[in-house]
């Protein structure tokens, strides 16, 4: 788990990609996409998260247990969001 790691070039590349994606988020927000605005914003944010998790947090070369922990926390977040919203979006249908 220790040792290894990425080269410095990769860290810089990921850092710059993150900044570019951030500028993209801001840029896209100024275009009217209707309901798609939030979808695009969340998609970019999720992609940024994946980059941070895989490279900065080294999950790319971490043990399988770490992958399970990361996936579990997001899976449970989805349970919380989806089941809670399932009530609100089906009210009065």
């Amino acid at each position: 788990m220790t040792g290894g790691g990425f080269s410095r070039r990769i860290y810089y590349a990921v850092g710059i990609t993150l900044l570019v994606l951030f500028l993209l988020t801001v840029g896209v927000a100024y275009i009217d996409l209707g309901a798609l605005n939030i979808v695009v914003a969340m998609a970019i944010a999720t992609f940024k998260t994946i980059l941070v998790v895989l490279y900065f947090m080294h999950v790319r070369y971490s043990s399988r247990v770490t992958w399970v922990f990361v996936s579990a926390s997001f899976f449970w977040l989805v349970i919380l969001l989806v089941l809670t919203l399932s009530d609100y979006v089906t009210r009065g249908v």
Binding site: R8, Y11, V14, G15, L18, L19, V52, Y55, F56
Partner: peptide, 9 residues
């Protein structure tokens, strides 16, 4: 975002 980069470095 920059601070995340500095931590990684």
């Amino acid at each position: 975002l920059l601070s995340s980069l500095t931590v990684a470095l």
